[in-house]
Amino acid sequence: MNEKVPLYYSIMEVIKDSIINGIYPIGSFLPTETELEQQFKVSKITIRKAIELLENDGYVTKKSGKGTTVISNSIFNKLSNGQSFSSILNQQGYQVTKENTEFEYITLNPQDDLFQYYGRQCLKISRCYYLDGEPYIHFTHYLPGDIQVPDQQKLNDFSLYMYLYQHNHSVADFNDDFFVEFPPLDILKALHLENGPVLGRKRISHDIYGKVVEVSHARYNTRIHNYQIQYKI
Rank of each mutant, 00 (worst) to 15 (best):
M1W: 07
E3R: 09
E3G: 08
P6G: 03
L7A: 08
L7R: 08
Y9F: 15
Y9R: 15
I11Q: 00
V14L: 13
K16P: 07
I19Y: 01
I23L: 11
Y24F: 10
I26D: 11
L30C: 02
E37S: 06
Q38C: 12
I45A: 15
K49E: 14
A50W: 07
N56Q: 14
G58S: 07
G58D: 07
G58V: 05
G58W: 06
V60Q: 02
K62I: 10
G67F: 04
T69E: 12
S72R: 04
I75F: 07
N81V: 10
Q83S: 10
S87E: 11
N90C: 06
Q92T: 06
Y94M: 00
Y94E: 00
Q95K: 11
T97I: 04
E99M: 13
N100I: 04
T101R: 13
E102I: 14
F103C: 04
E104Y: 14
I106R: 12
N109W: 14
N109T: 14
D112C: 08
Y118K: 03
R120Q: 14
Q121C: 12
C122M: 05
C122P: 01
C128S: 08
Y129H: 03
G133C: 01
H141M: 02
H141Q: 01
Q153K: 12
Q153T: 10
N156Q: 15
L160Y: 04
A172E: 15
D176A: 03
F179L: 02
E181I: 07
L185G: 14
I187D: 00
A190N: 06
E194K: 13
N195G: 12
N195W: 13
R201V: 01
R201K: 06
K202W: 02
K202S: 03
R203C: 01
R203M: 03
I208Q: 12
V212P: 02
R223P: 05
I224F: 04
H225Q: 12
N226D: 13
N226T: 13
I229W: 05
